[in-house]
Nucleic acid binder design. Structure first.
Lengths: 208, 208, 208, 208
DNA sequence: TATGAATGAGCCTTCATTCAT
DNA sequence: CATGAATGAAGGCTCATTCAT
């Protein structure tokens, strides 16, 4: 029983490695099978379609981020400090190990932009994303009620937009850092930290 | 002679149309040839490798943005107002016609992340990007010297980072708006405008 | 011990069901195993090669026809009447339940036309066929000796040919009736009965 | 222009050769390409789906029979004699070169019994079949009007059924003659001729 | 020069059959 | 014994790229 799950994980991580390095379209099922040291047919037994394993890898990538946010939320800090931690976590995406995850998500979003993928598969990914969304949302609410975040309603939207934008941009930077020949200038970590502080100070301003 | 250039443009725009709708990898050279009403062989005569026409389309997409920034720079406004215009232009990427271009760039950046592309080709794209980078850089400098932007040196970096981040995120949103089933929440235009104003007010703060 | 035979029969009938609906080549061993509610490995334990179970199904299909002819032969009728019954039985193939069997034979004959099958396996099928051949042969002889069939020697051959041909054609019609979009016109039952009567009247003609 | 048709014919005949020897399912597109001395891609250029070339081969097989029947119809004989010729032509299927065609049709009918094939493709085959059906139908009518065939209306149906059955059985025999190990006894040519004569004499009997 | 035709390498997927529990 | 898991070989089909007209 356990061996099956083991094997499955093994294939998923092999796929992740390959997807990370070569992208979804340039990784063949045979490649994955080889990397995982199994036969192709075995791979197909676990993931009947290529999209299936792609989804699985993506879901894992999202879920890998989950505990970190969860932990932030459950920490004994004020809301604004938790936001600080969230932003810091985002920044971590660039340099740390789960940069790979961030980058994978980046690639996936482009992948589905052009290749129609089954709705129910997408639904799984959406669900994983929402989980994180809810956590951040909760943190903002928390910060408002403990007074550490000072925003009126309209500012609330703004706050989520800013956070969203920060995450979006940083995730994308995580992709850039992998490029052998960077085309777009990627901000350094210190610069991002400065931006983070600007955002935080904004969030603490009394509502105008 | 002129006919040749005409033809070339025709192929590029046909390719752009197709790339925009189906992505780089899902568009075949045959597709492009058909869309451009030329033979495949002709297409290959003009663009010996598929990457060649991809680069060309991307370059065109970047250059298409160029005049707008150029025009902003040459306008008779103070630096801070020009920055405002730049940010507004970015926001325009989501809804306006050159959303297609923005999206194409987005896709391209991912494309080259996984497929090794010849250096000299990339160089051309970089050059196009730098052109825009220089314009923005000039605007910031201008704003500083006319006093409308108040930043010390370290803040200067911050300013470019913020602008960069804004552009990066918005470009990515331009891709999302194409997705039939959005997976990630995309901020509304009004929300982006609010963020823009926050940034602008930040840029005008006296350096601490 | 008995359970084994039970199991075996179960697999064979599962296979028959599937072969009838999808043909030999489009039915996988896994399909059969599932339909029979056993593991694939078990199926292979009983039938080490796919051809083995095919042969078994075909044999069963032939043998299923056997009792009907046997019963005709043993009935208390004159030879010509038995021939009548045999022809009627053939006609039954089109509409009745063992149309499936008839059709399976049809498919099998084509199957072996292209896929080399082991001789000893074929021998088993031949043996089953011969059994029926012998019965019909006996009936014809009977009819001649009781005077209800009037044929000289050379006509005897003719008689078997006609019967054979009738059977061949009708069996094939049994296949056609399954086709969703009939391509070849299939005679109606009543028409076949008319032909049957023509044949019967021919067989009763005094030898010329 | 002509070369294209040449090439196309070449592929079709290569396919026919292979289909005849190995059946539709056991012949791969690669096999056909090799036999025709072209690349697979070329084969697919002419016949985008495997079914397409199957249909083409089948159509050719049917059409190959066409001139013979047409010629019989246009000959200067009485109806009954033309029927004679038609039956003789059928018998020819067993021994002559177009036995291959007859056999192919046989195989095709089984093929479509299990594998769903696109309607419009089937329609083409049906059309080809109908052409022959119409000729035979016309001959029967001709025979009736010139008095050489004596049948009342109900017998007319019978006549077509008998002819149909004769053709059906003989076509199937054409398959059997290819089997390395005959499973079902195939009538000899002389026997079929006898049956033919029986049918002819029946058709000339005055209607009862 | 412009083009349709030709093509091999490669991809996703299936399946009969063997292993290991 | 019974079984699910594992697998390589093979099949249909696509596509960037080259030829030949």
């Amino acid at each position: 029983m356990n061996k099956k799950i083991e094997r499955r994980k093994n294939m998923i991580s092999a796929a992740k490695r390959l997807f990370t390095e070569h992208g979804f379209e340039n990784t063949t099922m045979q490649n994955i099978a080889d990397e995982a040291h199994v036969g192709v047919a075995t791979l197909f037994r676990y993931f009947p379609k290529k999209d299936d394993i792609i989804i699985e890898v993506v879901k894992a990538a999202i879920e890998q981020q989950f505990p970190r946010f969860q932990q932030i939320k459950e920490s004994n800090k004020r809301g604004i400090e938790k936001i600080d931690d969230v932003l810091t976590a985002y920044i971590g995406f660039i340099s740390e190990e789960n940069r790979e995850s961030a980058m994978l998500l980046e690639a996936f979003e482009l992948y589905i932009a052009f290749i129609p993928i089954e709705k129910n598969l997408l639904a799984e990914v959406e669900k994983a994303y929402e989980k994180i969304g809810r956590i951040i949302s909760a943190i903002v609410r928390e910060g408002k009620s403990d007074g550490s975040i000072k925003l009126t309603l309209s500012h609330e939207i703004l706050s989520s937009t800013i956070l969203n934008m920060f995450g979006t941009a940083v995730k994308k930077y995580s992709l850039y850092t992998l490029l052998p020949d960077v085309i777009v200038p990627v901000p350094k970590k210190e610069e991002l930290i400065m931006v983070k502080n600007v955002l935080l100070s904004y969030l603490q301003q009394p509502a105008k």
